Simulated scan of single mutants.
Amino acid sequence: MVLPAGGLLLAAGVAGLLAGSGRGAAVVAWGGVAELLLAAMSLKAWKKGRRSVGAAITSLQTGIAAFLSLRLYRVFLASAKPAARIVHGVLLAIAGSLLVFLVYNLLAGGNPPKRAQPGEEP
């Protein structure tokens, strides 16, 4: 879930920057970049069976998602125009969903590494 959510946040941040939204859009874009990079690192660690590294990366992702959710919530509340409220509400829903997923993942103990089936190479 982190890869698509990070990609959406990055795309929305870039679109906001192109539309002249300023610093807030840059924060969302950089948050999306950070989520994508950490997701790639987490996937790599998962494939190698490194659960502790994956848990540390997931913790970082959770912090970023919490920060973005809080920022977007504040911007959503301050938005006066209906179109801006819709855009910020959608981004808040994405970041909030990502946060819930990551917290669940941490509490559940993460994703266990894939075990090789008989006859498969690890």
Rank of each mutant, 00 (worst) to 15 (best):
K47M: 14
V27S: 05
V53K: 05
A29D: 04
S79K: 07
Q61T: 12
S52T: 09
Y73N: 08
W46A: 05
W30A: 07
E35H: 06
K47Y: 08
L72A: 03
T58Q: 02
L70P: 01
L72C: 00
V53C: 07
A40V: 07
A80N: 07
Q61C: 08
I64C: 09
R51N: 14
A29M: 04
F67W: 13
L43G: 02
G31A: 07
A39G: 09
G49S: 14
A56H: 02
L43I: 06
T62C: 10
L38Q: 13
G31T: 02
L68G: 01
A78W: 11
G31S: 06
G31Y: 00
W30L: 09
A80C: 13
A34W: 02
L43K: 00
S79T: 11
G32P: 01
W46R: 07
L37S: 12
F67L: 12
E35N: 08
L72S: 02
K44V: 15
A78N: 12
G32M: 00
A34S: 13
S79H: 09
V75K: 00
Y73A: 08
A39N: 15
K44C: 14
A40H: 04
A45L: 15
R71Q: 14
L70H: 11
L36D: 08
R74E: 09
E35P: 03
F67M: 08
A80I: 15
W46Y: 13
S79R: 06
F67E: 07
V53Y: 05
L36V: 12
A45R: 09
A66I: 06
L70E: 09
R51H: 15
S69A: 10
G54E: 06
A40P: 01
V33R: 01
G32R: 00
R51V: 09
K44P: 05
S59N: 12
A45F: 09
T62W: 03
E35G: 01
G32W: 00
G54P: 06
A80T: 15
I64N: 02
L38T: 06
A78H: 11
G63S: 14
A80M: 12
K44E: 15
R74W: 13
A78R: 08
W30K: 03
R50T: 14
Q61F: 05
S42I: 00
K47P: 15
L70W: 07
W46H: 11
V27P: 01
F67G: 04
A39K: 05
G49I: 13
S79L: 06
K47S: 12
V75C: 03
V75L: 05
A29H: 01
S79Q: 10
M41T: 10
A29G: 04
F67I: 08
L68R: 01
Q61R: 11
L70A: 08
A34M: 05
R71P: 02
A29W: 00
A78P: 03
K48Y: 13
L43M: 08
L60K: 10
K48F: 10
E35D: 12
T62S: 11
Q61E: 09
L60W: 10
I64L: 07
I64P: 02
K44F: 15
A55H: 10
A40N: 10
L70N: 07
T58H: 03
R71L: 13
Y73L: 06
Q61K: 14
E35F: 00
A39R: 03
Y73V: 02
K48E: 15
A40L: 13
L43E: 03
S52Y: 10
